[in-house]
Design a protein around this nucleic acid. Structure first.
Length: 154
DNA sequence: GCCAACGTTGGC
DNA sequence: GCCAACGTTGGC
């Protein structure tokens, strides 16, 4: 059992959007960064905890709790010629990019990035490191517990 | 819109 | 393999 933080632009897919989807599940496609892909393909397991993070918006921060709902599978958008996520070097035999299913569990209060930066127990979070841009980052059990408590505190 | 930081590409 | 140029991310 591991924990992750996954960034989504709420203009694209917000926590509300996922909760409105059938079974509260969406496919996490479109990742085009090798490190993030490797986390999905090599380390994520169904049931892993996910902090659903809203990025590139007025109020960046953790907006909900979710879980990994599938093993990794080839991201179909890499094969879509002319599509935004097309990768001409990817083939069905040798897919390059992976996706996983993510199930939203609950919307929480927004835990702003700025507040997270003030919490000493979170200072080692990959998200908070200088220059960190990864859309999927690991979260330690201690960081997860700290954040869940902060979310419940309201 | 700005810009720091990072990742990728491609010439050599 | 080096590295300059370019593109992207994402907070502010």
């Amino acid at each position: 059992m591991q924990y992750w933080l996954m960034k989504s632009e709420p203009d694209e897919v917000s926590i509300d959007d996922v909760l409105a989807a059938p079974k509260h599940i969406v496919s996490w496609f479109g990742v085009r960064n090798y490190q993030a892909r490797n986390f999905m393909r090599d380390a994520m397991r169904p049931g892993d905890g996910v902090l659903f993070y809203h990025s590139s918006c007025a109020q960046p921060g953790v907006a909900g709790l979710a879980e990994v709902a599938s093993a990794a599978y080839p991201d179909a958008t890499q094969f879509e010629a002319g599509g935004k996520y097309h990768d001409p070097k990817a083939t069905a035999e040798q897919p390059r990019w992976s996706a996983v299913d993510v199930r939203a569990l609950k919307k929480t209060r927004l835990l702003p990035l700025a507040e997270m930066r003030t919490i000493p127990a979170l200072e080692d979070m990959v998200l908070l490191q200088k220059g960190s841009r990864l859309s999927i980052t690991p979260v330690s059990a201690g960081q997860w517990n700290t954040i869940v408590k902060l979310l419940n505190k309201g």
